[in-house]
Design a protein around this nucleic acid. Structure first.
Length: 257
DNA sequence: ATGTCCGCTTTCAGCGGA
């Protein structure tokens, strides 16, 4: 089985590239983030032509998550119990069972700056997510993948000095991610296609991608039984190249299954 | 590092968000 996660930064703007990438990568399940489209506007017909069923959760202008699967798509859950809002509900999590594995696509709040209310929202959202995942883990094999907006270590940003005082690297954010690992979710480390750092995000501005000044903020966490069957995991930086890319690259994972 | 992109509205220009 092959699955992937990708923050596409608008599924409408990215549709030609998404379809091309699906054809060439041929994942069985895809977790998408920042689709920026309501459920009824998702290009489900277009991905269906490639054999994928869609479960989408969106609100229009911001956020939005989805699952694509050609391995079954059952028991879809949009959001999660007790999920904090800002102030109302936001489309940041969707999960479903594909071939016996529950996949959850998450788009963790950005946090903006450590003194912004959005930062506290981010931490609270991750706290509640942790409790939900504890229950999901008890129910069976689990993959949680998406844009966590957290760089777990200093090695996960291109220059730690630049990020001093910024979100994505603060101890409370890192602790919130560590709490997911402590549940028994295993970080599936993706290798870099090129260079030493498996960054998954590069700002559009200032030639950051070209200089490989990126961050590793898109992550895949798997229950231990699944993590033991991983045969490869890679950041597909080819998808960040060329005309009209997302600012994130997909992470592609292969399981012996 | 702050050199772009996206979706929306105030729609051929500016804004919030990332």
């Amino acid at each position: 089985m092959r699955f992937a996660t990708w923050n596409v930064n608008s599924v409408k703007a990215r549709l030609p590239r998404l379809l091309d990438w699906l054809e060439h990568t041929a994942p069985d399940v895809v977790c998408l983030q920042e689709t920026k489209v309501a459920e009824d506007g998702f290009p489900a017909d277009e991905v269906a032509e490639l054999g994928y069923a869609t479960a989408a959760y969106g609100q229009g202008r911001w956020n939005g998550v989805a699952l694509l699967s050609r391995a079954g798509l059952d028991d879809v859950r949009r959001g999660f119990p007790g999920e904090p809002g800002y102030p109302g509900p936001e489309a940041r999590a969707i999960s479903a069972v594909c071939d016996g594995i529950r996949f959850m696509s998450v788009y963790v709040p950005n946090g903006r700056t450590p003194d912004d209310p959005h930062y506290l929202y981010k931490l609270q959202w991750l706290r509640v997510l942790r409790d939900v995942l504890a229950a999901d883990l008890a129910a069976g094999p689990l993959v949680v993948a998406g844009d966590f907006n957290v760089a777990p270590t200093d090695a996960d940003v291109w220059d730690p000095a630049v990020f001093a005082g910024s979100t994505h690297v603060t101890p409370p954010e890192r602790d919130a991610i560590a709490a997911l690992r402590e549940l028994g979710l295993t970080d599936v480390p993706a290798r870099a296609m090129k260079g030493d750092h498996p960054f998954t995000y590069w700002d559009y501005r200032a030639g950051m991608f070209h200089q490989n000044k990126g961050m590793r903020i898109d992550h895949v966490y798997a229950s231990a039984d699944l993590a033991a069957t991983v045969t490869d995991a890679v950041v597909d930086r080819e998808a960040r190249k060329g005309k009209g890319p997302s600012d994130h690259a997909p992470v592609v994972v292969d399981l012996k299954r």
